[in-house]
């Protein structure tokens, strides 16, 4: 993904530009339902209005705070439990199958239960985001440590490392690429969870508000603005995660 960012290819712009031209044309000459096809500039105007009025910043801060808090909880739990399962075969056999079984319940099927147990407000949202983050982090941590342990079992025996030493100096460093991959994936899922939580639970400031309002009032400009915003934040989170991942892993001898 990163090499695509560095290597800009103008051909990639052709399709979006064509789409925008088509959009503009059909709005301009009224080829389609005018409520559905609003002029592109309306979206820009709405975006500016949101920026100037401070709504944009308000929603962005609220959503990001929500996202990161939920991510922290979910990723923390995923890391700890994933490591525990990978390091202790007994725990693995005890809890592994149950965790796998629970994972089969589609993420959004938790919404009704979560909202009954935790209400509709912020706590429920955090629980949902944490749940969305939890599984990718858990499985990648687990797999990472597990595969390293198999490979390095011999080495540690040769060097006569203790358990603690093995864990800190061998297992965790060696497993870190996959653990980071899990965290990266978890971050992407947490963003999905944030949008889902804002959509299904109580309406509160956030990036999804324009989407929800826009749909309710049939205002296409708001909906499109909301989608662009969500996409941009998603891309930003992804870019930050990629950068962090690379930087953190740079020290590793390849």
């Amino acid at each position: 993904m990163s090499q695509n960012i560095s290597k800009f290819d103008p051909r990639g712009l052709v399709v979006p530009l064509l789409l925008i031209a088509l959009w503009w044309a059909s709005a301009h000459w009224g080829w389609a339902d005018t409520r559905l096809v609003v002029p592109p500039l309306d979206v820009v105007a709405y975006a500016r209005e949101q920026f100037v009025s401070g709504e944009l910043a308000l929603g962005l801060v609220a959503s990001l705070a929500r996202d990161l808090a939920g991510f922290a909880i979910g990723a923390g739990a995923g890391l700890v439990i994933g490591a525990l399962l990978a390091l202790s075969p007994l725990t693995d056999r005890l809890a592994g199958p149950s965790l796998h079984a629970v994972k089969q319940v589609a993420l959004f099927a938790w919404i009704p239960l979560i909202s009954v147990w935790f209400g509709q407000g912020e706590p429920a949202k955090l629980v949902f985001i944490a749940l969305a983050t939890f599984y990718p982090v858990l499985f990648n941590t687990y797999e990472g440590i597990k595969s390293v342990r198999r490979e390095l079992a011999e080495v540690t025996r040769v060097f006569g490392f203790g358990r603690r030493q093995t864990l800190l100096r061998l297992v965790l460093p060696a497993a870190s690429p996959q653990i980071f991959a899990g965290l990266h994936l978890g971050l992407i899922y947490s963003w999905l969870g944030t949008i889902g939580a804002e959509y299904y639970l109580k309406v509160a400031p956030g990036v999804s508000t324009p989407l929800i309002d826009g749909r309710e009032h049939f205002e296409m400009a708001r909906v499109l603005y909301g989608m662009v915003l969500i996409g941009l934040v998603g891309a930003l989170l992804n870019a930050v995660a990629t950068r962090l991942e690379q930087r953190t892993l740079r020290w590793r001898p390849r």
Partner: peptide, 28 residues
């Protein structure tokens, strides 16, 4: 060549999680 033309658009589409598409689809 197809990749160069389509992939960026495709990635942009995939950036918005599925829930984000629901309101747009409903309007359409």
């Amino acid at each position: 060549r197809v990749e160069a033309y389509l992939l960026p658009t495709f990635k942009a589409i995939s950036l918005v999680p599925v829930i984000g598409w629901v309101p747009l689809f409903i309007l359409f």
